[in-house]
Design a protein around this nucleic acid. Sequence first.
DNA 1: TATTAATAGTCCATAATATGGACTTTTTTA
DNA 2: TAAAAAAGTCCATATTATGGACTATTAATA
Lengths: 257, 257
Amino acid sequence: MEKTASVSGAQTIHKAISLLKFIARFSGEGARLIDLVRGMEIGQPTAHRLLQALVAEGLVKQDTSHRYHLGSLVFELSLTSGHHFNLADICTPVLKKLADETGDTSFLFLRSGDDAICLAREQGPYHIQTPVVPVGSRQPLGVSAGGLAILSALSEQEAAAVLKAITPRLVMFGNLTTDRVWEYYLKSNAVGYAAISNRAAPGVKGVGVPIIGEIGTPIAAVTLATTISRMTEERIQEIIPALNEAAEQIDVLLRQF
Amino acid sequence: MEKTASVSGAQTIHKAISLLKFIARFSGEGARLIDLVRGMEIGQPTAHRLLQALVAEGLVKQDTSHRYHLGSLVFELSLTSGHHFNLADICTPVLKKLADETGDTSFLFLRSGDDAICLAREQGPYHIQTPVVPVGSRQPLGVSAGGLAILSALSEQEAAAVLKAITPRLVMFGNLTTDRVWEYYLKSNAVGYAAISNRAAPGVKGVGVPIIGEIGTPIAAVTLATTISRMTEERIQEIIPALNEAAEQIDVLLRQF
DNA sequence: TATTAATAGTCCATAATATGGACTTTTTTA
DNA sequence: TAAAAAAGTCCATATTATGGACTATTAATA
C-alpha cells in the first residue's frame, strides 16, 4: 500500500501527503495524532508539525476534540477539476459493454461520504429492463446494491460509523433497519459481492462489486439490476466475473485520469 | 490572496500546496511550469522538483505536453469527505431566509468543472413560485443564472476555455450560442451580477451572484428566480444586496467546514 | 525543414530546514 | 481526584531543500 515512490528532494511532501491519505481512511470519526503516528512511520513531533501546516493551508481540519479530518480545500480543489463529470463519460463504454453482455441494466455509483450517488446507467438488450435508480440520485450507503458494495469494502469500524450516521434516514427506504444493513454487510463480505432486493422497486434485485482507489478505500461501485426471478444464485455466479472485469477497467480509467 | 500563514518548520508544504492552488486556477488548459514560476514566488528548479513530488503522489497530473493539472487523488480524497452532501444541509437556512425575504425561489449551484449542479432549492412565500431547476440537475456553465454567475467570475481566458468545451452541448439549451453566452459573460461582469431568462422555462428569469473560494476561483452561486414581469431592473437592484449577503454567509460556512 | 528561441529538466555545493529526544501542558480515563 | 495517555513545544544537530548554472527538449519562426 505504501508507495516507496518519493521523488528525491521532497521527502516532506511525501510525508505530508501520506498523512493526508491516512486521514482519509478515518472518514467520519476523524483521526487522532496518535492514530497517525502509530499507523505510519513518522515521529510524533514531525507529524504534529506537518499536520499544523496542512491545517493552516486548509487541506486538513482539526475539530474541537483535536481529531483531524480532511479540510474544505480538498473539496474546493475537486470542484475546479470537473473529474466527477468526466468520470461518467469515461465509464459509459464499460457500462454499455456490461449491459450488452448480460442483457440487464448496469449502474455506476460513486461514494460521497455516507452516501452513494448514481453517476451513470446503461440499459441492456434483454426485454425486461429495470432502470430503478435515476442518474444523479443519492441514497445512504447500504441501501442499494451499489451503496452496499461500497459499504462492504469499508472496515467494520468505518462501516459502523457510517451506519450510525445514516440511521435516521434508513426508515425512508422500505423500513430498513441498522441491524438488517449490518447483516447485509457481513453477508456481502462473506460471499465477495453485494446482492440486495431494491426497497423502492419491489421485484427488482441488484448485484454489485466495489471499486477500490489508490488510498485503499472504496470510491465507487458497478452494479447490475434485473428482476428477482431472473437474478438467481446461479446467474449471479455467472455475471460476477463480468462485474469484476468492469470494476477493474473502471479502476484503470480512474488512475489514468 | 497569498496567505503568509506558513507554520514555522513546514515551508515546503506551504510551497507545494500553493502550487496546487495555483494549478487549480488553470482548469482546462493546464498550467505550464513557467506559468507557475512566473505567477508565484518560487524558483524554477524548486517548482519543478516539488511538482514531480506532487505528481508521484497523485495530487498533480502532467499531460503529454508537460502541462500540469490536478490529479485524481484530489477527486478521490474529496469522495471520502462527504462535503458535497453536507454543504446542501448547511446552506439550507441561508437559502430559506433569502426566499422568505424576497418571496421568490432561491437556489444554490455548485461548480463541477465546466458544469453547474443545482445543490439545493427553497421556495418563498410569494403566490407565484418558479422551481424551474430540479435539485441534482446539471447544466453547462453559462446556461442558468447560477452557471452564468460562476462563469462570470472566471478570467476571460478561463471562461473562453469553458465555452469552447461546452459548445457542443449548448444547442440543447434553447439554441444558445457561444457568442450569446459570451455577451452574457461580458454584461454580467459589467453590472456585477448574472441575470438571464430561463431557456427551458419561458417567462422565468433568474438573477445570481458567485461565491468565491479560498483559491480565488468561483466554486458556487446563489440565485433567485421568478417571472420576467416581476424581475424588473428596479427589483433586481433591490434584491442584489440580499443575494450578496447570502453569498457572504455561505462563503463563511464553507470556510468553517 | 533548418534555425532559433523558449521552456523543461538536471546537478551539486551551500544555506536553510526538518528532525527527534526530552520536555511541559492538556485531556481523558479510572 | 489521581493517574495515565495524548497533545503540544523547544532546540541543537543532522538532514534536506535551495538556486545558480548548466544541458536537453520542445515550440516557434524563417
